[in-house]
Write a protein that binds this DNA or RNA. Structure first.
Lengths: 205, 205
DNA sequence: CCTCCATGTGACCGCCCGGTCATACAGCTT
DNA sequence: AAGCTGTATGACCGGGCGGTCACATGGAGG
């Protein structure tokens, strides 16, 4: 947690520091991100940074936390509809909204992607925490799908979770790939989700 | 490419160096792997390393190349059957065999995983190259699936490629996770592939 | 005007990194 | 014995890193 000094700062200065930290953690994963670079870009002394935060990890956790709060808020409208739509509609809305987030806030998006790819031991604990949250969220939607009958009851739940998680991560990693065509990307997301819904094997109906 | 000096070395010494390089690149991604650590562990002078290789990247490329050759050889029996089995059987055999590779050669496996997660610009070119190879291989199998009718002709090919690639990466990343139960993992792999084959939505048949 | 305390500073520390180079050595040729 | 060639060595270099610390600054309270 940041020190009291940081929260005493004018909001403007807090945000100034936050913005430059986001820039660096968007560009590099935690281990390769440079504190020196952040303070240079932000135009403050390195010593000041250590008046605000315990150490590099403290700053990093603060940044990741804030970015995740921001993204959750952005996805709120989708969650609000969770009881009015079926599993497949929900998934489609969820990923399309995530895609809009990535487009509108590419640096925040990159911070999150870097966070998930991190190998640092201390950071991995936080990742497991986030993974569990996702897991609960997804398990809830999946349960609704089973109850309402839109999902085949014979489905292996663990496998379903695994596949959706894998595809979600790949979709999200791919959002800012240089060859992604912005206009048609929603169509692509829907094609991917439709494949998961229908399967590859032809249906007799 | 390694310098001539390296290939003049007795095979035993070449392999000694290779083994310790694999260890380090299995433990850390390229950027964080330490040449100093490799030479210390291998018990040779740092200067010697630069008699054998141009620089760190040269060594890394050599290691990744050799590891990939090794894995390809291991997967050869699966490829040999590619015209005798359908797409779904092939996928199942392919991933189960990859799983065996990861169990038998965990360090080689980790080198490959680290390679795919690398962010270094120069390394990314090599990744794109490997990605294309995979892409061609997979496209071939997919085409066979379409021709023989086991895959729904309405399937979006790009989406199919994307999903299989995503799931493959997640499976492979997961092979050495601490909570993977070795005995039942083949069952799990099949459950995942079956989900891709059948889809989540119930079938009327 | 002086004190006090929160805030701000940047030179500096020890560490590790990839990479270099002058030098030594061993074996073969003459 | 001398010369040559390919191999081996580790002290050393410049640079970047996270983190520290003695000191400067400036506004509030007496």
């Amino acid at each position: 947690m940041p020190k009291a000094t940081f929260f005493n700062l004018p909001r403007e200065k807090q945000e100034h520091i936050f913005r430059h930290a986001v820039q660096e953690f968007a560009l590099h994963p935690y281990e390769q991100a440079s504190l020196t670079e952040i303070v240079n870009q932000a135009g403050i002394a390195k010593g000041s940074m250590y008046q605000y935060f315990e150490d590099k990890k403290d700053l990093y956790k603060y940044v990741v936390d804030k970015v995740y709060q921001h993204k959750r808020k952005f996805l709120q409208p989708v969650w609000a509809l969770k009881d009015n739509v079926d599993f497949f509609e929900f998934a489609s809305m969820y990923y399309r909204r995530s895609w809009h987030y990535a487009r509108q806030h590419p640096e925040h998006h990159r911070v999150i992607v870097n966070f998930w790819d991190s190998r640092d031991d201390a950071v991995r604990d936080e990742i497991l925490h986030e993974k569990q949250i996702r897991s609960y969220e997804f398990a809830y939607m999946l349960e609704q799908g089973f109850k309402s009958g839109v999902i085949d009851p014979r489905t292996d739940k663990e496998a379903a979770w695994f596949v959706y998680h894998a595809v979600a991560k790949a979709l999200i990693d791919n959002f800012l790939a240089p060859d992604v065509n912005a206009d048609s990307h929603e169509t692509f997301i829907n094609a991917v989700l439709s494949l998961l819904e229908q399967g590859l094997r032809p249906r007799k109906e």
